[in-house]
Computed example of a mutant assay.
Amino acid sequence: MANTDKDISYSDLKSLREKSKDLLLVDVRSKDEVDRGRIPGSIHIPLDNVEKEFSLDAHAFQEKFGVPKPLLDSRDLVFHCQMGRRGGAATEKARSLGFKNARNYAGGYKEWSDKEGK
Rank of each mutant, 00 (worst) to 15 (best):
M1S: 13
T4A: 14
T4S: 14
D5T: 14
D5S: 14
D5F: 12
K6C: 04
I8P: 02
I8K: 08
S9P: 00
S11H: 11
S11E: 15
S11M: 08
D12Y: 08
D12P: 00
L13T: 07
L13I: 05
K14W: 00
S15G: 01
S15A: 11
R17N: 08
R17H: 05
R17I: 12
E18G: 04
K19A: 14
K19D: 14
K19V: 11
D22V: 02
L23H: 12
L24K: 06
D27H: 11
D27S: 09
V28N: 07
V28F: 06
R29Q: 15
K31W: 00
D32P: 10
E33R: 09
D35G: 13
D35Y: 02
R36K: 10
R36E: 15
R38I: 01
R38K: 14
I39Y: 12
I39Q: 08
P40S: 12
G41Y: 10
S42Y: 11
S42M: 10
I45V: 15
I45W: 08
P46N: 11
D48I: 06
D48F: 03
D48V: 14
N49F: 10
N49V: 00
N49S: 14
V50A: 03
E51H: 10
F54G: 09
A58V: 09
A60F: 00
A60S: 15
Q62T: 11
K64C: 07
V67M: 06
K69G: 02
K69L: 05
K69F: 06
K69Y: 02
P70I: 00
L71N: 05
L71I: 03
L71P: 02
L72H: 10
L72G: 02
D73S: 14
R75K: 15
L77M: 11
F79A: 12
H80A: 06
H80I: 01
C81T: 05
C81M: 11
Q82E: 12
Q82P: 00
M83V: 12
G84K: 07
G84C: 07
G84S: 07
R85F: 06
R85S: 12
T91K: 05
T91P: 02
T91W: 03
K93A: 14
K93I: 15
A94F: 09
R95S: 04
S96W: 09
F99P: 10
F99Q: 09
K100Q: 07
R103Q: 15
R103L: 03
Y105G: 10
A106M: 04
G108H: 08
G108S: 12
K110N: 13
E111P: 01
E111H: 09
W112N: 09
S113T: 11
S113H: 11
D114Q: 15
D114F: 04
E116W: 03
E116F: 02
G117M: 13
